[in-house]
Computed example of a mutant assay.
Amino acid sequence: MNNEELFEGIDDTQSITQKYFGLSLTKFLMLVFLVFATGIYIGILLYGTNSLEVFLGLQDYEEYLQSEIQRLRTENAELQKEYFELKEISAK
């Protein structure tokens, strides 16, 4: 048995994907497409327009609450001033 007979038994017709991944080229390409599509889908869920809209809405709501806090503090100071003035008048 010589070397040529040994090499004839080896199957050289396998594609690169069959050698390294055990998949045909079609199945490998479908798997790569599926992985990319899933990654894009998850990216859109996490960082897409809906998340951006919610984030911007929360920023607007925070600004509204900050202005409401300031308004209520001012109103509270005025009411306390009026209360103490009335209390001082009634004490006399």
Rank of each mutant, 00 (worst) to 15 (best):
G43D: 08
E63W: 01
Q80E: 15
F36Q: 12
Y64E: 14
K27Q: 15
F21I: 03
E63M: 05
T49E: 12
E8F: 10
S15F: 07
T74C: 01
T49F: 04
L25F: 01
T17S: 09
V32T: 07
E75D: 13
R71Q: 09
T38H: 02
G39L: 12
Q18F: 07
S24E: 06
L25N: 00
Y20I: 09
E68I: 12
F36D: 11
Y47E: 05
L56T: 07
K81R: 15
V32W: 09
G48C: 03
Q59H: 06
A37V: 10
T38L: 13
D11S: 02
T26N: 05
A91L: 09
Y64F: 14
Y83E: 12
Q66D: 10
E4Q: 08
Q18L: 10
D11G: 02
S67P: 00
L58Q: 08
N3W: 13
L58A: 07
E78K: 09
E4N: 15
E53H: 11
N50Y: 08
E8T: 11
S67Q: 01
S15K: 04
E8N: 12
S24V: 12
L34K: 08
Y83D: 13
F7K: 15
D12H: 05
N50W: 03
I89F: 06
N2E: 06
S15D: 02
T17N: 00
I44L: 10
A77V: 07
G57C: 10
Y83H: 14
M30P: 00
Q66M: 02
Y47S: 01
I16S: 14
Q14I: 05
A37C: 04
I42R: 06
K87V: 11
I10P: 01
Y83P: 04
K81P: 00
L86W: 08
L56V: 08
S24A: 03
Q14V: 11
A37F: 11
K92P: 01
I69V: 09
K27M: 08
L56D: 14
V54P: 00
G43F: 08
L58S: 07
S15W: 01
K81S: 06
F7M: 13
S67E: 03
K27D: 15
E4F: 14
Y64C: 02
L46S: 04
L45C: 02
Q80S: 05
K92F: 04
K87T: 11
G22R: 13
E53P: 02
A91M: 08
E82S: 14
E4C: 12
E53T: 08
L31K: 13
E78S: 06
T17F: 00
I16W: 05
I69N: 02
M1G: 09
L56A: 09
K92H: 12
L31D: 10
G22E: 09
T26D: 08
F7V: 08
S90G: 00
N3P: 00
R71C: 01
E5I: 09
Y41N: 10
Y61A: 11
S15N: 06
F7W: 15
L79P: 04
S24R: 06
K19L: 11
V35S: 06
L6V: 12
Y61E: 06
L46Y: 03
D11T: 00
